[in-house]
């Protein structure tokens, strides 16, 4: 018998003070569903980086804008969706620039693409939906 999916839904404001609590909640969900610590740590980092990008870029550092996060464990994978109502810029569509470790910017997206099995940005009429999946 397949266990029912475990789902987490969080609504936060775009205040950096909220990042740690969301990251820790996602990491706990992953570990409670049998994901190894190293993998759940990576998922947590990716959620942190995705939210930080929303705060910095989509909301231009405004601390009072909404962000919705859902995380669901299903079919031995965690599926995470992050919805914002910001400027709708798709970071994957920006002109590619060679990564220079000594220049700021770009590391968050690199983490997402390296650590998650699936990453998809879907522009919305009023913002952006980021969906990410990491297999167990």
């Amino acid at each position: 018998m397949t266990a029912p999916p475990v789902k987490l839904r969080l609504k936060i404001l775009s205040d950096p003070a909220n990042l740690a609590a969301v990251r820790l909640a996602i990491e706990a969900l992953c570990q409670e569903n049998g994901m190894k610590k190293e993998a759940s740590d990576e998922v947590g980092l990716c959620v942190n980086e995705a939210l930080a990008n929303v705060i910095r870029h989509a909301y231009n550092k405004a601390a009072n804008r909404p962000i919705e996060i859902t995380a669901e464990f299903r079919d031995d994978a965690v599926r995470i969706a992050i919805r914002d109502w910001g400027n709708g810029v798709n970071p994957e569509k920006l002109p590619p620039q060679p990564y220079d470790p000594l220049r700021p910017g770009g590391l968050g997206l690199i983490c997402l693409l390296k650590m998650m099995n699936h990453v998809q940005f879907t522009p919305q009429p009023d913002g952006m939906l980021l969906e990410m999946t990491r297999n167990k």
Partner: peptide
Amino acid sequence: DSSAIAVLV
């Protein structure tokens, strides 16, 4: 996270 890394850089 990357913001801390940016401070170190």
